[in-house]
Structures are given as C-alpha cells and as structure tokens.
Write a protein that binds this DNA or RNA. Structure first.
Length: 543
DNA sequence: TCTCTCACGTG
DNA sequence: GCACGTGAGAG
C-alpha cells in the first residue's frame, strides 16, 4: 500500500538522467545516449525509460535537519523503525509498466564511530557488514501509475542489531554509518526482476545517511526526534505539570527553557558558521528543492543550516538530562558538524571481505511470510540454479514476485559465492546477487548521476531487449493483486564489507562481458560532498 | 555500549 | 481497549 497521501508534493524532483548534469560529471564511461539508443517500444517512450524516473525525497527538509546534526537511528533487537521514515514521490514512470521498489542500507564507509566530545569521531575499523537484506516495498510489484499516484512510504522498514534476526529486519552494526539506497527495478513478465536485462536505477539521498546507535548519543537528535515523531509525543514537554518534567525535577535535574536552549544552539552555530542562521524556507512536508547548489559546491558550508533556527513550539521545554557519561549534559554545540572538514566521497569501493555467515542457523519458519512480516533469503554457496534441492528452493533465476510471498524465509538458495564475485556497493543488494543475479551480472554498464543536491542516481542503461520489453498480460491489475509480494519482503544477501568508501576515486561498475563471467571496472567518480560528510571530525585531525 | 522495562502516546 | 512505537533510564 502507499501509505499516507501526499500533501501536494511537488512534481519537481531529481532527475535520474539530466543530460546537463551528466555533462558535469567527471566521468562518463558510457556514451551519453547509451541508455536510450536503439529502438524503443511505444510503451517505453524515451521519457519513460527507467533512467528518466524522478524520485523526490519526502520531508527532505526534515531529513536535512537531522542530517545537519548527524542523523542517528536506533537499532534494537526487536527492530526499530526509522525516523524520519523513508518516503518518496516518484514520477516519470511508465504508468503501465510494473516496477519493484526496494531499499537496502549499505555501510557508508569502513569506520566504526564513537560519540566523543559532542561529536562523532572515527573509533576504528568497521565490523564486517551484516547480512545484507533488502526491504521490498509491500506493494511491489505495481504499475508506475500506482507508484506515482501518491507517496511511497517505507516507514515499516525496521532496523535491528540482532545478527540472527528472524523477522527479516535490516541488520546493522551499532555505531556505524549507513546509507539507505532506493532501487527501482522494472518487473519482468513474471513480476520478478530476475530475468535477463532487467532495468533498474538506484537513488541515493545523502541526507538519509545515518549512524546506527542503540541509544541516542547526540541530545540534539533526541530532541529532533521527540519534536517530530508523533510516537515520541509522550516525551514532549508541555507545561509544568509534565510528568517527565516532574520526574526530572524530583531528581534535581535542571530544567532549561527550550527557547533558551535554542538560542544557545543558534548562537553557537552562528558563531561557528560565521553566517546568519536562516529560517527554514518553509515548514515543508514537501519535496525541498530550494537548496540546489552548484555541483562541486556541496560543501556543507554552502548548505543552509536551518536546524534549531526557529522555535517551532515555544511552549515546550527542553530537559537537561543528567547522564553519567555526560552525553546529555552539554547543550551547546561546541563545534558544529558543518564546520568539520572530513570528506567522505561517494565513491564506491568494495573490498573483498569474508564474514561470518551468522544467519546460517536461522530457524526455518514461515511466520514472516505468513504473517506479512518480512521474508528473506539466505545466500549459500554453490551454483545458482543447478543445485540439488532446486525443486525445493526455486532457483534464483526463477525467483519472482509470485513466489516471494510463499517462499519460506531462510530458505537457503544456492548462489555464486561472493568471494568469487566482485561487485560494487551499488550492486550489493542486487548482487545480493543471491537474489538478483541478473542484475548483478554484467550489464552494459551502470551510470550515475549526482544532482546539485547530493542526490545520487545510478541506473543501468537498459539493453536493447529491455528497452523493447513489453508488459505482458500478467500485468493486469488483477494479476498484480494476486501476485502481490509479501509485505516487508526482504532478501538476504551474502554479506560483504561493502561501503561507500573514501579510499578510492573509482566507482566500480559492471562492464559488459559474457553472461557467465563477472567483472567490474573502475571509473572515476565525482566527489560529492554533503553535510553528512562533515559530521565527523577528521580522525587524523583529532589524533 | 547494550538490554530491558517502563510510562506515555498514537492510531 | 488494544497493539504498537517512542525515548528514558537503570543496570
């Protein structure tokens, strides 16, 4: 279902393939017209190719406010929803074509972090990536018309730190930085995305990057969550009779006026930024496209700093929490994250890494699928399709949306091992190879576009056959309903230490080759610097 | 740093 | 009334 009606979301989004932006990129290994070259069916007019799909992040303003502070997401054993939740407005789809929308969350870098001295600092090397899981939107597959009709919400996506999570939640490591990615995949004739030449594109919104935590480290994040998350309303102060206020007062905790706190924060930020604090452009629940800055000027110094810029509710009180670790004591911002200079480029690399296949011993259960919970698949070693037991477990190549809902979670699929297969971060979930081998296998090349707002789009130029692909009779609404994928459908890939790293100037992309061999090449990738890159004071600098 | 329980709120 | 989501805070 498409949750929550969009309150007049602007149609202006971020284009996946704006030629003008394309030309701005430092690289372009693929001919400009590669994606649209060749014959194009009437169903897939040029402006309806997958690379022309526009995706607009909903509540971008809210995301930015978190981002500027340094977004933290709680992860729990039982699974915790993200807030802000990932919601998008899509346009540019072919109304009749079926698409699958899914999210994966990849490590943003190879670091482990700690919150020290009121700022995030690198604390060492990252743990091996958790078993990669995908969150497929429960409406998938659905027609472009369906997706474009209203907001697409991924709010039920849950994050967990339980390596043996049986619910299909996305598994993350605490104190690591992650980047959610949206993937839009054209469903094939079987409502899956495993067939040859499946077209897809990936959208990355840098403001959705976050550091996973088991408890909030930055009090500013806590306050932002309390102020904006309806479920946390119980923690909003209202008046002197506030229960928590009383509780705190009874414990001799100081109570500080929210306005005072805000003034302090604004003052601190203004001071460090050396520029006036501007009010938010609007209390926008809509797509925020007002912050475009020239490519190459994405340094956070140039981004509007609008968090804490204006009291939203002057009646509220901030509580000054007494914490033994001191995390909540310092209400002023000693040094704004925006000021920091560490740069984490959106250059993808993927060091070959093995990891413990923690999910090997998952209990076999149908509960998830049966109850509408997430469904996931574990990758195992072996051949993709010719394995014993293939009759029990549908082969990956035949895996499609029709089956997702009925396949038991933790079914062990035989896939090509990651150790023998290089793949890009971008294709982790695809390479997630385990479930979308065709997408991970050689394509005619992937391209990426970074718009002026740090929204990165990666897409696969659809091969000729894909461009000419036609929707089949099975794409009728009825069929679509019948083939509905299980809610929270998830896949699990054989994990790897994949991250949006900063160690290389190259962007691994699959190149065309034979259908059986996999290889990737590196291409220079534009440096895209966003405010998130500045959360962390340079490790080296602080050392 | 994490887990668990709690009170409070949403829907 | 109930299931569920939230951050707080003790341990």
């Amino acid at each position: 279902m498409l949750q929550e009606k969009s309150p007049a979301v602007s149609d202006e989004g971020f284009t996946a393939a704006k030629p003008s932006q394309c030309q701005n990129l430092a690289f372009d290994p693929i001919p400009q017209d590669a994606a649209t070259a060749g014959s194009i069916s009437q169903e897939d007019a040029p402006d309806q190719n997958i690379q022309n799909i526009k995706v607009c992040l909903h509540e971008k303003d809210l995301w930015k406010r978190f981002h500027e502070v340094g977004t933290e997401m709680i992860i729990t054993k039982a699974g915790r929803r993200m807030f802000p939740s990932f919601k998008i407005k899509v346009s540019g789809m072919n109304p009749k074509t079926k698409y699958i929308l899914l999210i994966d969350i990849v490590q943003a870098d190879e670091h482990r972090y700690k919150f020290c001295d009121n700022k995030w600092m690198v604390a060492g090397k990252a743990e091996p990536a958790m078993p990669g899981r995908l969150y497929v939107h429960p409406d998938s597959p659905a027609t472009g018309m369906h997706w474009m009709r209203q907001l697409v919400s991924f709010q039920k996506l849950k994050l967990t730190n339980n390596h043996l999570d049986p619910f299909g939640h996305i598994i993350l490591n605490s104190m690591h930085k992650y980047q959610p990615r949206l993937h839009i995949v054209k469903a094939d004739e079987n409502n899956g995305f495993s067939s040859k030449n499946t077209a897809f594109c990936t959208h990355i919104f840098h403001e959705t990057a976050f550091i996973s935590v088991t408890s909030y480290q930055n009090h500013k994040i806590t306050q932002l969550k309390i102020e904006n998350n309806p479920f946390a309303k119980g923690f909003r102060g209202s008046d002197e009779s506030d229960m928590r206020l009383s509780r705190l007062q009874s414990k001799d905790y100081p109570v500080i006026s929210k306005n005072i706190v805000r003034q302090t924060l604004v003052s601190a930020h203004s001071q460090f930024l050396g520029k006036p604090v501007s009010s938010p452009q609007c209390g926008s629940q809509q797509c925020d496209i007002s912050t475009h800055v020239p490519l190459g000027a994405l340094d956070t110094h140039d981004l509007p700093f609008n968090s804490f810029s204006a009291p939203r509710d002057s009646n509220l009180l901030y509580h000054c929490f007494k914490r033994t670790d001191g995390r909540h004591l310092d209400l002023t911002c000693k040094r704004p994250y925006l000021e920091t200079s560490s740069i984490i480029d959106e250059r993808y690399c993927h060091p070959a890494a093995s990891y413990e296949q923690a999910a090997q011993n998952y209990p076999n259960s149908n509960d998830s699928a049966g109850s509408g919970e997430a469904c996931m698949y574990t990758a195992a070693e072996g051949d993709i399709s010719g394995s014993p037991g293939a009759e029990d477990h549908p082969t990956l190549s035949s895996l499609n949306c029709n089956m997702w809902a009925s396949v038991s979670p933790y079914t062990s699929y035989n896939v090509q091992t990651m150790e023998t297969m290089a793949y890009s971060t971008f294709s982790t979930h695809f390479s997630t190879a385990s479930v979308m081998p065709r997408l991970a296998t050689p394509m005619s090349g992937s391209r990426s576009q970074a718009d002026t707002d740090g929204h990165l789009t990666i897409y696969s130029p659809p091969p000729q056959s894909e461009i000419c692909q036609r929707t089949t009779p099975s794409s009728s609404p009825n069929q679509s309903s019948r083939n509905r994928v299980a809610p929270h459908l998830l896949y699990e890939r054989k994990p790897s230490l994949s991250y949006l790293g900063n160690d290389t100037n190259h962007f691994p992309v699959y190149t065309q080759s034979t259908s059986s061999s996999r290889e990737w090449s590196s291409y220079p990738h534009p440096r895209v610097r966003t405010s998130a890159d500045n959360w962390i004071d340079g490790y080296k600098e602080d050392k």
